[in-house]
Amino acid sequence: MEFLKIVIDLLNIVYDELKVQVLLANETVEYTSWLTASIFSVLGVFTIFLSHQYQNHTSELTKLFWTMKNNVIKKDEDEFRQNIIDFEYLSKTPSVILNAVNTSLVILKILVPVWIISGISMTLTLLTKKGQVHYLSMMLTLIVTGLFVFFSLKLADIISKLSDSEEEGVQLQNLTDLFNANNLIRKNFPIDIFFSMHTTSWVFLITGDSPFTQIRINNEHGLYNFSTLLFMEATGYEVYISFPVILQHNAKLPKVTNCILEEQARVDIQRFFNCVRIAEIRVSQIILIENKYYYFSCEIEKQNDSLFEVTRLVSKQKMELPTEIKIEFENKKNVFYMNKEY
C-alpha cells in the first residue's frame, strides 16, 4: 500500500507539472499562430509547384506510352527502342520534386503535434480563468484546432500519393513496371505483335559431353512474368519444353534466362538435334500471361554445328496441348517431355 501511495503521489506531481507547462505554453500560442501562417504560405507555394511539375511529368509519360503502343503496332523496332530510352529518362522523377515532397511531409508532421498542444493549452487556459466559463471560446478553439489537424493530415496524404494515379501509363514508374507482362496486358498493350518483333529467342548449345545441352532464352527488353513453351516436332518426334520467365532476385530484368534441365533431358535434346535434320523440324511457341494464351509459329536456324536458335515468331491459330503438360505449364512449372526415349 505504501508503494502504491508513492506511485500515485508521483503521478500527481507529473500531472500537475504537465498542466502548468501546458498553461504556460498559452503565452506562445500567438507566436505559433503567426509562424504557422508563414509556414503554410510557403507550403502552399510548394504544393502548387509539385502539382505543376507532376502534371507535366505524368502527361509526358502517358503520351510516351501511347507512342510506344503505336510503334509496336507499326512494328517500328528502332522507334520503339528509342521510346524505351526516353521512358527510362522520364521515369526518373527529378530530385527537386522528391525533395519538395519530403520537405512538405516533414513540415506537416511537425505542425500537427504543435497545433494539438496549442489547442490543449488554449482550452485549459480558458477552463482555469476565473468567472464565467468561456464555452464559446473553448468550442471555437477545439473546432479550429481539429480543422487544422484534419486539413494537414489530408494534405500530407494527397502529397504522398501524387504518383498514385490510375491514368494509363502513369503507374508504370520505371522499366521494371513497364516490362512486367501483367501490367502490359492490363493496359491492352499489343503483346502478340510485341513478341513477333523478334524480341525473344531460344538458343540451344549442343556439346559433345556434359552438360550435353545448354538452353537459354534471350529476351531483348527483359520482359518478365510470363511462361513460354516451345514445341518442336519432326517425323516420329515431339518435344515440349517450357519455362517461366520471372524477375531475377536482384530485381534485374531477365534479358537472359538460363534454363535448367535434368541430365537425361539434356542428353535427349542433344540426340534429337543430332538425329533430325534442321529442315525437318517444325517449331511452335506458346506464351502464357495471366491465363491468356498467345500462339506463334517459329523458325529454327543453325548458327553452326553446335548452336541452334529459334526466332521469328508469327501469330498462328490455337493449338491443343496434352492435358498433363498444359496443367504444369499453367502452374508455371518447368516442363520437358519427349515422346521418344534413347
Score class of each variant (00 low, 15 high):
D9C: 04
N218Q: 14
S118Y: 07
E301S: 13
V29D: 06
K130N: 11
G44Y: 03
F243H: 15
S33V: 13
E324K: 15
E77Y: 07
I300T: 10
E88V: 02
S160G: 08
K130H: 05
L223K: 06
G119W: 05
L288A: 06
W34Q: 13
P211R: 04
T199R: 10
T145N: 09
G222F: 02
N250W: 04
M232S: 08
A279P: 08
V133S: 06
K292I: 03
K69Q: 02
Y295P: 00
Y224F: 15
L313G: 02
I217K: 11
F3G: 01
M68P: 01
K109A: 13
E290T: 09
M232K: 07
Q21C: 04
V7L: 11
W66N: 09
F194V: 00
F272Y: 11
S137N: 12
K63Q: 08
Q285F: 00
S38M: 12
E301N: 15
M122A: 09
A251S: 15
E238Q: 14
S227N: 15
D177Y: 11
V106P: 00
E262K: 14
K63N: 12
T145W: 06
I13D: 11
M139C: 05
V106A: 11
N274Y: 09
Y237M: 03
I6P: 01
S315H: 03
E166G: 15
A25V: 02
S165P: 04
F194G: 05
L35A: 14
